[in-house]
Design a protein around this nucleic acid. Structure first.
Lengths: 222, 222
DNA sequence: AAGCAACTTAATTAATTCTTAATATTGCAA
DNA sequence: TTGCAATATTAAGAATTAATTAAGTTGCTT
């Protein structure tokens, strides 16, 4: 699971990053609204944690914009007591949950987990299932015909991305961003290599990865 | 998605072009009002970004004229703080959104995206449906009798254009402009080739592409 | 510190898509 | 109805993008 935290208090973000990492949850940080919006738009996160009060672009703005764009990633809002407004309370803002500052980090982690796992959300934390395959991100295990196969991390991350929303196209950019981070400059060829590895593993299954030339890849039934 | 930017600051337009391209958004630039109007009239863009203060013809003029002509492309206005007038603020000008200079390029990109994806906009939808066919531009998939067929990009772009407004004639010029860009010098014969490909795909359906001799093509029920 | 697994780079091969070009057909006007 | 311009068809080769293979590097584990 990979989450985005948009929050301008640097100390807090550092602490959260550390705690989430301990829980095997990857974290990307944005320290202002503008950067947060840019990252959120990438549509590569499982959960977004969003402070309302932000420099440049407010949290509510960010939600509005990404929801307009059809991005359905669950959002948890962080609000100070004195900025608690009805929109947030009623979750009309487009957010899925909120926490009032100061909050317990344990509580936040629990809620991130809960949202990441929620039914109806495309991402499910514990186990992804599609067609005749399943994947356990926690142990990087691909399950085919009841047999669990441990696969390398990068392969796992890629598979997780694809299986989290089968039938949806993931662009090469999205894949690079998610697997190698934002300002990485790995050769795009690496995508093809991991796709290749996964395809080999899926050979005997009824599931395939389709190429959308010039765009990206998509997980489908054969 | 393809957008038109009408703005006389060359440095700004160059920067924007670069940034939009990175987001896989095609950009056409006009550096003065006259050229901008000429291009906007072509009615081949998904979004138009329009500076108010322009040499020759003002941005407000351009909107007025294209709206009079029935062109519904969403428009985002760029205004300096000191030329912010009520018309723009109230969006009575015919524009759909506005940004005050200096603006965050990320914000602009976000808003272009939001408008480009808006329902009822002619281009860019999740799914186009007409008669007995449908098209998914994201995956370049044509759906016939419940079967999804992947088609090449150029074919897809052409189909998207036609199916976005069925029953409307698209001129050969519009098609060339949209598929190959303005100063391209591909042989016009290419249009016929792609029309031909699409027709083959539509053979078994109840939908056809009709030739309007000397003008262009139109998507219709058989 | 050696050995192994995972990851990255690089180079080659394969496949698809786009364009050119050459030829055939159609529809319209004189 | 003949001839011309516009459109349709087909085939071939360029160009682009992806797949594959191999070799080298890193970093972890024991």
């Amino acid at each position: 699971m990979k989450i985005l935290i948009v929050e301008d208090e640097v100390k807090l973000t550092q602490a959260l990053e550390f705690l989430f990492n301990k829980q095997k949850i990857d974290v990307e940080i944005a320290n202002d609204g503008e950067e947060g919006l840019m990252l959120a738009e990438k549509d590569i996160y499982d959960v977004i944690v969003l402070d309302i009060m932000l420099p440049n672009v407010s949290g509510l703005e960010i939600i509005r914009i990404i929801r307009e764009k059809g991005i359905k990633t669950p959002v948890i809002m962080l609000t100070a007591k004195d900025t608690l407004d009805d929109k947030v309370l009623g979750l009309d803002s487009g957010a899925d949950d909120y926490l009032v500052k100061p909050f317990s980090t344990k509580e936040l982690i629990a809620r991130v987990r809960a949202l990441g796992r929620r039914k109806n959300t495309e991402y499910i934390n514990e186990k992804y299932e599609f067609n005749d395959i399943a994947y356990l991100p926690k142990n990087f295990e691909l399950i085919i015909r009841g047999i669990n196969i441990k696969i390398p991390k990068k392969e796992g991350d890629l598979l997780e991305m694809l299986i989290s929303r089968p039938g949806q196209v993931f662009t090469r950019d999205q894949i690079v961003d998610r697997l190698w981070g934002l300002e990485s400059d790995v050769l795009e060829n690496n995508i093809e290599i991991y796709i290749h590895h996964l395809r080999k593993r899926l050979e005997e299954t009824n599931t395939k990865i389709e190429t959308i030339r010039g765009v990206g890849y998509i997980l489908k039934e054969k």
